[in-house]
Structures are given as structure tokens and as C-alpha cells.
């Protein structure tokens, strides 16, 4: 094989590898997903964020409008401070919107859902979402349910007794 054919093959090999790397970067991994997009940051405080993770999606009416940039514990009031990185394309969100942490599916990952408010002012960089709803913790809910069922039972028998005693 001549030197020219050999070099052509080597060039083909290197180009193939570059094409593979491009595919791994753009199609397989999240490299370019949020870079180049202009964003603005909004803060929201929650009593309990449940299983929320960094990079979880932020949605409005099911449409993705941003992602969770960071999660930290506020040292003063012991609430979770979540910074939402919103896409600039969604710049028209009223600043009295509510943020709630929901779960995708029964056991799926948590995400933040925004419910639009009625204000004329839009959210902008550095704003704080004051109206928030915590994550629903399945175990707590089951516990409360059991507790309230028991309480109903005992309350019912108590009131029966209370009704009976005067007579």
C-alpha cells in the first residue's frame, strides 16, 4: 500500500473518531443542552424539598422552562433555599407565581412546577418566589392518614360516650 493510501486511511480513522466524539457530546450527553442559552436566576424557599435534586426540571403547565441550579439550607430559618435557573425564552412569568414540588409518576424523580399568578410584573434575575408548596412525602402522608383514621374512630366512640353520659 502506498504512502498516500495509508495516510488517507489514517485520516479516515481520525475523522471517524471525531464524528464519534461529536455524537457522544451532542446526542448522548447533556453537554450543549444549557450552554449558550441565556438564563436568569430566581430563588424560592421551601419547608421541605423531599427528594429534589440539582438539575431537576422546572416546568410551567408541563412545559420545561428551566432547571434547579443549586440547593442549600438557609442557616437562619432552616428552610431549603432553591435557586431556579430559568430560560430567557420564558421571561413572561408573573412574579406572584407559586412554586410547588411535584413527583413525576408514583415513584419518579421530583420536579418544580410553577403555577402562574396574576401580577403584571414578570419574574426577573434575583427575584424571590414567596408562595411555595413543599414536596409531598409519601411516608408522612400515609402516617397522617393512619393517624386521622384512628382519631376518627376514637373521636366517634368518645362522642357516643359523651352523648350517652348526660342521659
Amino acid at each position: 500500500m502506498g504512502q498516500k493510501a495509508l495516510e488517507t486511511w489514517v485520516g479516515f480513522f481520525i475523522l471517524l473518531a471525531i464524528a464519534g466524539l461529536v455524537m457522544l457530546a451532542f446526542q448522548v450527553s447533556n453537554l450543549t443542552r444549557y450552554q449558550g442559552k441565556r438564563t436568569y436566576d430566581v430563588t424560592a424557599q421551601f419547608d421541605n424539598i423531599g427528594d429534589l435534586k440539582v438539575r431537576a426540571p422546572v416546568t410551567m403547565a408541563g412545559v420545561k422552562v428551566g432547571q434547579v441550579a443549586s440547593i442549600a439550607l438557609d442557616p437562619k430559618n432552616y428552610r431549603a433555599t432553591v435557586i431556579l435557573r430559568m430560560d430567557n425564552t420564558a421571561h413572561y412569568i408573573p412574579n406572584d407565581s407559586e412554586a410547588s414540588i411535584l413527583t413525576a409518576g408514583l415513584l419518579g424523580a421530583n420536579y418544580i412546577s410553577l403555577t402562574p399568578g396574576f401580577a403584571d410584573q414578570f419574574l426577573k434575575n434575583g427575584d424571590v418566589i414567596s408562595e411555595t408548596h413543599s414536596a409531598i412525602i409519601l411516608e408522612q402522608m400515609i402516617g397522617q392518614l393512619l393517624f386521622s383514621v384512628n382519631k376518627d374512630k376514637t373521636a366517634g366512640s368518645d362522642s357516643d360516650n359523651a352523648n350517652k353520659t348526660p342521659n
Partner: peptide, 15 residues
Amino acid sequence: ISLPLLTIIFCAVAI
């Protein structure tokens, strides 16, 4: 040089 390039090609083709 070749092994990293081959690995990239392997990953792309396997996916």
C-alpha cells in the same frame, strides 16, 4: 493515540 480514538468509536457504535 489510537486506543482513545478506538474507544470513542466503540462507544458511538455500541450506543
